[in-house]
C-alpha cells in the first residue's frame, strides 16, 4: 500500500473512533444524574467544557507548530498551525454559543460582561484576525512568517481566559477540573465530562488531519499551476549564440 493510501486509511479509522467516542459521550451525558441545583441544564456543560478545552488544545498546537516552523522552516508545520487554529476557532465559537444557551436560563441573560466571557470573546476575535491575516497573504513563506508572530502573541490569551475567573470577581464559576487540588465534581459527572473531553479532542484530531491534507493538496495544486503556467511574451526568444560554427547567429537579426 502506498504511503498516501495508508495515511488516508488512518484518517478514516480516526474518524470512526471519534464518531464512536462522541456517541459514547452523548450516552454518558444522558445517563449521568442531574445536578442538584441546575437539574438537566447541567448536561449542556458536557458539550461546553469539552469544546473550550479542545479550543485551548488547538491554540496550543498552533503555537507549538508555529515555533517548529520558525526553527525548521518547513511549511508542513505552518499548515498544521493554520489548520489547528481554524478548527480551534470553530470549537471556541461552539463553546461561546453553548455557554450562551446555558447562561440564558441560569443567569437570565444571553451575555453578561463577565471577565471569563469577555476574555473568551476577545480570544475568538484574536484568532479570527490570525485567520484573516493568513487569507490576505498569498506568498506561503511571507504568510507563514507573519502569521507566526501573531500566533505566538495570541496564545498568551489562554492563561488570561482560564485564570480570569480567579483574578477578577466573576459571575462565571471558577475552574472545576483544571485547578490546584482535586476536581470539585462528583465521580459520575466527572467520568461523563472526561469522556466528552476525550471524544471532542478525537474529533479535533480528525478534523485537523483532514484540514492539513486539504492544505497539502492546495499547495501541490498551486505548485503544479506555476509549473504548467501558460506561455508568456518572450518565451520564444532565445539567447544569441556567439559560436557561428555551431548554430545560426542572431547578430544583426531584423536588419
Amino acid at each position: 500500500m502506498n504511503p498516501a493510501a495508508t495515511q488516508s486509511a488512518r484518517r478514516d479509522w480516526l474518524g470512526i473512533v471519534a464518531a464512536v467516542a462522541i456517541l459514547g459521550a452523548f450516552i454518558l451525558a444522558l445517563l449521568s444524574p442531574p445536578d442538584r441545583v441546575q437539574g438537566d441544564l447541567t448536561r449542556m456543560l458536557y458539550i461546553h467544557v469539552p469544546t473550550i478545552l479542545t479550543a485551548y488544545l488547538a491554540f496550543i498546537v498552533t503555537t507549538v507548530a508555529t515555533i517548529a516552523y520558525l526553527v525548521s522552516r518547513r511549511l508542513s508545520w505552518d499548515r498544521l498551525a493554520a489548520s489547528s487554529a481554524e478548527v480551534g476557532v470553530v470549537f471556541l465559537g461552539l463553546a461561546i454559543l453553548t455557554g450562551m444557551v446555558w447562561g440564558k436560563p441560569v443567569w437570565g441573560v444571553w451575555w453578561t460582561w463577565d471577565a471569563r466571557l469577555t476574555t473568551t470573546a476577545l480570544m475568538f476575535f484574536i484568532y479570527l484576525g490570525y485567520l484573516g491575516l493568513r487569507r490576505g497573504i498569498s506568498d506561503p513563506v511571507a504568510r507563514a512568517r507573519r502569521s507566526a508572530i501573531l500566533g505566538i502573541v495570541a496564545v498568551a490569551q489562554i492563561p488570561i481566559v482560564h485564570f480570569s475567573v480567579t483574578w477578577w470577581n466573576a459571575l462565571h464559576q471558577p475552574p472545576t477540573i483544571l485547578r490546584p487540588g482535586d476536581p470539585q465534581i462528583d465521580t459520575p459527572l466527572l467520568i461523563a465530562l472526561l469522556v466528552g473531553i476525550g471524544a471532542f479532542m478525537l474529533v479535533y484530531a480528525w478534523l485537523v488531519a483532514r484540514r492539513v491534507e486539504l492544505e497539502r493538496h492546495e499547495a501541490a495544486r498551486l505548485d503544479a499551476a506555476i509549473d504548467d503556467a501558460a506561455p508568456v511574451a518572450g518565451d520564444a526568444i532565445t539567447s544569441p549564440s556567439l559560436d557561428a560554427a555551431t548554430g545560426p547567429s542572431t547578430r544583426g537579426a531584423g536588419t
Partner: peptide, 11 residues
C-alpha cells in the same frame, strides 16, 4: 505584519 496583505487596512 499586515503590510501588503489583501484587506490590510481593514484587517
Amino acid at each position: 505584519i499586515a503590510t501588503r496583505a489583501a484587506m490590510g487596512p481593514a484587517l
